[in-house]
């Protein structure tokens, strides 16, 4: 799944089974083999938690009575961790007391299946949980996508920027953020009408998507502003990518106003490694560069390395 083109998860959902009984894993592999899903197996709670965190599955089937860590403790930890809390969990248990069922649902399980299970029943319950999970995912992804351009929206940027910033600080990876603003956008709207303005927004979004790599994150920041998060990319490299976008936008011919070209200004703040700059100051630095690009004549890229304070001004087109 690429990050700049939001998509639904893989075609075959992965289901993680956490059960200490090798028999259960074997039986499920055979009984669910026609379900078009990928089964992962963990034989105890800690291994299951690690697997769920490492590569979050679409659904977890969780046994309760396991040596070491009880299933309820596994469930509690799954629901505590932001990375795993949204994964639906079906509890499998040989104990069908009402107390256990209530406790399981209270802890956040979506379903409870008694052991020994009737496989036809388990199959339909797995299907139902996966269907629900897919709908939930669709809804939450809708809420993160900008309707007009299909890029990620501001809320998604805010969340992911914090994550990428934390990663950069922790591991010392390079990271850049680039703010894009369409020059004189209001004039396009006023002169050619809002449909023409929308077409420009969609066109710039398309160019951003084309120039992005899989790991880059293209978002609509608001109005006629876009933002790119570029992991493992220093300010110089980010400036080269931004320059390609700037050039492509400048060259584009717009069907509704073929003689009226559109340009964009770009402000970039990047770091080649860990930095003391806060995540807010970082975006502010990019915004200051965008403002400077606008003030100095538009249609240009200005980039700063926040660790060094070096500003690179790339060429303004003729």
């Amino acid at each position: 799944m690429t990050q700049h083109t939001p998509q639904l998860a893989e075609v075959h959902p992965r289901v993680l089974v956490i059960d200490d009984s090798e028999d259960v894993h074997r039986l499920l592999r055979v009984r669910l083999k026609n379900e078009e899903l990928i089964l992962d197996a963990s034989l105890d709670g800690p291994a299951g938690l690690a697997a769920a965190k490492d590569n979050p599955p679409a659904l977890i089937l969780l046994d309760l009575d396991m040596p070491g860590m009880h299933g309820f403790e596994v469930l509690r930890r799954l629901k505590e961790d932001a990375k795993t809390q949204a994964i639906p969990v079906i509890v499998l248990s040989g104990n069908c007391s009402s107390e256990d069922k209530v406790a399981a649902f209270d802890l956040g399980a979506v379903d409870y299946v008694g052991k020994p299970f009737e496989f036809t029943e388990l199959r339909v319950r797995v299907r139902s949980a996966l269907r629900l999970q897919r709908l939930m995912q669709m809804l939450s992804q809708r809420a993160q996508i900008d309707g007009l351009t299909g890029l990620w929206n501001r809320a998604f940027f805010d969340q992911r920027w914090l994550e990428e910033y934390a990663r950069c600080v922790r591991h010392g990876h390079a990271l850049s953020v680039a703010l894009f603003d369409i020059d004189h956008f209001k004039a396009v709207n006023d002169t050619f009408g809002h449909p023409a303005g929308d077409e420009v927004l969609q066109g710039v979004a398309r160019i951003l998507r084309q120039e992005c790599r899989q790991t880059d994150l293209a978002c609509r920041f608001g109005g006629e502003e876009f933002v790119l998060v570029l992991p493992d990319t220093d300010s110089e490299e980010a400036a080269r990518l931004a320059e390609r976008v700037r050039h492509a936008v400048e060259e584009a011919i717009w069907p509704r106003h073929p003689t009226h070209r559109v340009t964009i200004s770009i402000g970039i703040a990047g770091a080649s490694g860990s930095t003391k700059v806060s995540e807010a100051e970082w975006v502010e630095a990019a915004d200051r560069n965008l403002y400077a690009a606008k003030r100095s004549g538009r249609n240009r890229v200005i980039a700063t390395d926040v660790t060094l304070g070096i500003t690179t001004l790339t060429r303004k087109s003729a």
Partner: peptide, 17 residues
């Protein structure tokens, strides 16, 4: 206890109710 627990859960699945 573990052996009984596992057989309870699994034997039925193999057709040995």
């Amino acid at each position: 206890r573990r052996l009984a627990h596992q057989l309870k859960g699994a034997a039925g699945g193999y057709g040995f109710d």
